[in-house]
Amino acid sequence: MNIEWFRDYCLSMKGVTEEFPFGEQTLVFKVMGKVFALTDVDLFAGINLKCDPERAVLLREEYDAIKSGYHMSKKHWNTLEMDGTLSDNLVKQLIDHSYDLVVKGLSKKAKEDLNKIA
């Protein structure tokens, strides 16, 4: 997996925008204004993704390349080290999981607006 694939995949999801709110090196993906993924554009050494707290702990125990969220809530975020040891399929699943968690937490109005997007 490379940053182009990651970017294209995130942008293919409904209601997603990309921003650089923390400076020109940190690429942030949001759904309806809420962050679900971020990475360093220069190195692409890791991806931060939101995760269910119980699942987050299990993933960290199972995979050496999954750590508690770097500069994020350690309870709700994981950092996936992009060292080639995680399968593309697992990374895709975890991106989807992060997106779904954020959508689930949106306000009723934001969910309605998201559903209106073609």
Rank of each mutant, 00 (worst) to 15 (best):
T79A: 00
G69K: 00
M82Q: 07
A56K: 00
D96W: 12
M1C: 10
E18W: 07
K74Q: 04
N48C: 11
P21S: 07
E112H: 13
E54T: 15
D96R: 07
M13V: 07
N78A: 06
G105I: 02
A110R: 10
D40S: 12
N115M: 13
F20W: 09
D88W: 01
N48L: 05
I117E: 02
G33C: 04
N2M: 06
T26V: 13
L90V: 02
A118F: 15
V35P: 06
E4A: 13
M1E: 08
D83N: 10
L27I: 05
L38R: 05
L86C: 05
Q25M: 14
L43W: 15
S68F: 13
K108D: 05
S98A: 04
L43Q: 15
E4S: 12
V91P: 00
K116L: 12
I3W: 06
A110W: 01
L80P: 01
F6T: 00
D42I: 15
M82N: 09
Y63R: 03
Y99F: 05
D113R: 13
L86N: 03
F20T: 04
K74Y: 09
H76N: 14
D42T: 15
E4T: 12
V28Q: 01
Q25L: 14
W77E: 06
E81K: 15
V57I: 11
L38F: 03
G46W: 09
M1L: 10
N89H: 09
I117A: 02
F22D: 11
I3Y: 03
E112R: 14
V103A: 07
S12L: 07
E19Y: 13
A45C: 14
K74P: 04
P21I: 03
E81V: 15
K14P: 11
M32Y: 03
V28A: 06
L114W: 03
M72R: 06
D8V: 10
D42M: 14
H71M: 06
L59V: 09
V103W: 01
E19C: 08
N89F: 02
E61T: 12
L27D: 00
K34C: 02
L101Q: 07
E24W: 09
K104E: 11
V16H: 00
M1F: 04
W77Q: 05
C10R: 00
Y99D: 03
I66Y: 00
M72F: 01
F22K: 10
E61A: 12
L59Y: 01
G33Q: 04
L80Q: 02
T26Y: 03
E81G: 11
L101N: 06
